[in-house]
Design a protein around this nucleic acid. Structure first.
Lengths: 221, 221
DNA sequence: AAGTTCGATTTTGCATTCAAATTGAGCTCA
DNA sequence: TGAGCTCAATTTGAATGCAAAATCGAACTT
C-alpha cells in the first residue's frame, strides 16, 4: 500500500468518526487492519498531526484531535475566507460547462430539499461547494480548503437544521448559483461568507464542539 | 531531539536554500548531521512533503520541491486571500498596544528604506505582515499563512526591487498602517491585496520560478 | 564510436528489534 | 478504607536489519 493511501485510509477512519474525537488511536490494531507495520503507520500519523486531525502526545501516543468551540470558530472563519476567495476566482475562470454542471447539481440538491432528504441534500451541497473551489483553478487553494473542511466536515454536514434554517440555506444557494451565472465574483464571495457564517452559528449553537464528554453519534452516510 | 524540532531544522535547511530546489535530499548525510537515524528523518520528510516543501518520488527518494510559475502565482493568490482575511480580522480584534508595536516596526522599516538596507527592510517588512496575521487572533489562519509564506519566502524576500517599486511598497505600507490605526478592515484588506499583487508581479517578472535551467525534467519513453 | 544490456552497488521502504517511558495492578502502611 | 509506593507489563520512539527497486558502470554489439 502506498504512503498516501495509508494517510487517506486513516483520514477516512477519523472523518467517519470510527475513532471518535479524543479517543486514543490504537497503533497495533490499525496496523493489523491495514496490514502494515508500525513504521508507515506512524509516518501517516505524523502527517495527519501536521494537518490537525491527530494530536500527538509525547510518549503517550496519538489521539483523534478534539475541536474546542474556539477551534471550530477559527476553522469556519478561515473556511469563509477560502471559499470567498475561491468564489471570486471561480467567477473569473469558470467555463459555461462548469456552470451548467453546478446548476444541475443545484437542481438536484433542491430536489433533495423538497424530499427532506438531509443526507442527500448535504451530499449535493458539498459537491457544489467543492465544484466552486475546483473552478477557481488553484490547486494550492483547493488543498488548503480540503484540509480545513476535513476538520469541520462532521460539524458542517451532520448538524441537523431547523426547517427555517434549511429554507434559508437553500435560498442562499440560489443566490450563489445566480452570482456564479452572472460571474459576479464580489457578490458571490459575499454570499458565500454569509452562508458560511450562518452555518457556523448553527453549528456552534448546536453545541457541536467536541470537548465535552458525550459525543455526537451521527455519522456521515 | 523532538520530532517537531527535526521538521523545523530540515525546513530551515530548505528555506535557506542550503538544499536548493530540485536537488536530491541526501538521507544518510542529513541523518549524520542531525544525529538521528533514518526513521525520524523520514517521518519529517513525509510531513514536509505534505506541506509542499518536499517532493517524494516513489523508490527514487525525496527532492526539495521546485516551484513553477503557476505554483508561484497560486501561492501568491492564496497568500493574498489569507492576508486580506487576517487584515479584516485584525481590525476587529487588535489592541492599541499591538497597533503601537506595528507602528514602531513600520517606522523602523522606513528607516531601513531610507538607508537602502534591503535585508533589514525585508526583515522589518516580514515582521509587520506577521504581526497583522497574529493580531487576527486565529491560530488556524496563522498556521496556514506560515505554511504558504514559507514556500514563497525566498521569492518574496529576496527579489531585488527597482527604486520605483520599492518606493511604492513603502507607500503601500503607510496605507496599511493607516488603515490599521483607523481599524478599517475592508480598506486594509484591499490594500494588502494590492500590495501582494504588486509583489507577485515583481517576483514573476524577475523570473524567480524555480523550474528553468539547472534540472532537466524526467522524460519517459 | 554510440548505444544497449547485464550485473554489482547503492538506495529506498518496511519489518523487526531494542531501550526508555508510561501505565496499572498489587502491596504497604497510616 | 484508602492514599501512596513498587515493580512488572505494556506501549512508545528510535535504531537496525532485510528485501525490493533503482542507479551506475563495464562489457558487448552494431
Amino acid at each position: 500500500m502506498l504512503h498516501d493511501e495509508v494517510v487517506n485510509r486513516i483520514r477516512a477512519i477519523l472523518l467517519d468518526g470510527e475513532i471518535p474525537p479524543g479517543a486514543r488511536i490504537p497503533e497495533r490494531e490499525l496496523c493489523e487492519r491495514l496490514e502494515i507495520s508500525r513504521t508507515p503507520l506512524r509516518e501517516a500519523l505524523k502527517v495527519l498531526a501536521a494537518e490537525g486531525l491527530v494530536q500527538l502526545l509525547p510518549h503517550r501516543g496519538s489521539r483523534a484531535a478534539k475541536l474546542t468551540d474556539k477551534d471550530m470558530r477559527d476553522l469556519f472563519e478561515v473556511c469563509q475566507g477560502l471559499e470567498a476567495l475561491a468564489g471570486e476566482l471561480a467567477c473569473e475562470r469558470i467555463s459555461d460547462a462548469e456552470i451548467d454542471a453546478i446548476a444541475a447539481a443545484h437542481a438536484d440538491m433542491v430536489q433533495h430539499y423538497r424530499e427532506r432528504d438531509l443526507i442527500q441534500y448535504y451530499r449535493g451541497n458539498r459537491a457544489i461547494h467543492e465544484a466552486i473551489v475546483t473552478a477557481a483553478g488553484n490547486p494550492v487553494l483547493a488543498g488548503l480548503y480540503a484540509s480545513v473542511t476535513a476538520r469541520i466536515r462532521r460539524a458542517r454536514y451532520v448538524t441537523p437544521m431547523t426547517a427555517q434554517r434549511w429554507a434559508l440555506a437553500v435560498k442562499e444557494h440560489e443566490a450563489i448559483l445566480n452570482a456564479l451565472q452572472r460571474r459576479d465574483g464580489v457578490g458571490l464571495s459575499h454570499i458565500l461568507r454569509a452562508h458560511l457564517r450562518h452555518k457556523r452559528e448553527e453549528v456552534l449553537q448546536a453545541g457541536f464542539a467536541e470537548t465535552e464528554g458525550s459525543e455526537p453519534t451521527l455519522r456521515i452516510a
